[in-house]
């Protein structure tokens, strides 16, 4: 049984003011520096980036965002995507925040000397990747709510997405939810009671958008 997010409920904000944690999360690098590193083809190799899983998660998110931007260009939707400059900036901010290792999520092992964990950042990263891989979907934000550090405690996942044209939103949300449930089950022992998906942005084909404006 899944619950839907009420339309007027927004995400709880990340602790964006915690700059120490933000910098530590990306090994002291900013998302702009990582973007430049991608531009340079990751050459010369920078061990402070390459040896950081948080940087790698952010780099992969950046790469997928760039692919979507290129795809928008191909589909002559650049004008639409640029209608709000905050759109890309907001996704970049979230990629930065979500790449942090965050909390440790325990994995089960019978040995008393074993401490096996998957980081919250790794889970958010694979959830984001799962969403981005779906046709015409881009994950804007992904967050885990609840005590993920205690096995068996029910948690919820909240996801903001942008949906691109020609998609039936309820079907997309259902596909996304099923894919995310599968990934969480594959990589964690978390008990997920709900995956709330909020479509925060709809990208409309320029022609349709222009026609709409003519009629207003």
């Amino acid at each position: 049984m899944t619950e839907l997010t009420p339309a007027d409920r927004r995400f709880v904000e990340f602790d964006v003011d915690d700059t120490d944690r933000e910098q530590a999360g990306l090994n002291g690098h900013t998302i702009e520096q990582l973007s430049d590193y991608l531009d340079r083809g990751r050459v010369p190799a920078d061990p402070s980036i390459d040896d950081s899983p948080d940087c790698e998660i952010a780099l992969r998110g950046l790469e997928r965002l760039r692919r979507v931007q290129l795809s928008l260009l191909d589909r002559d939707l650049k004008r639409e995507s640029l209608r709000d400059d905050n759109w890309v900036a907001s996704i970049l901010d979230n990629i930065t925040l979500e790449a942090h290792a965050g909390r440790d999520i325990p994995l089960i092992h019978p040995s008393p000397t074993a401490r096996l964990v998957v980081t919250e950042g790794a889970v958010r990263g694979i959830l984001r990747e799962t969403g981005d891989k779906l046709q015409n979907v881009l994950v804007g934000r992904c967050a885990l709510f609840g005590d993920v550090g205690v096995p068996g405690v029910p948690i919820t996942i909240s996801v903001d997405v942008t949906v691109f044209p020609e998609e039936n939103i309820p079907l997309v949300a259902d596909r996304l939810r099923q894919a995310m449930y599968a990934v969480v089950a594959q990589h964690t022992n978390l008990v997920v009671t709900a995956i709330d998906i909020t479509v925060t942005d709809l990208s409309i084909a320029p022609q349709a958008s222009a026609q709409g404006q003519e009629h207003t």
Binding site: D54, R60, A114, G121
Partner: peptide, 13 residues
């Protein structure tokens, strides 16, 4: 003797 073996999965994919 082993006190603890910690394995951290820090990235997936």
């Amino acid at each position: 003797p082993v006190a603890q073996i910690e394995v951290i999965v820090a990235r997936i994919g």
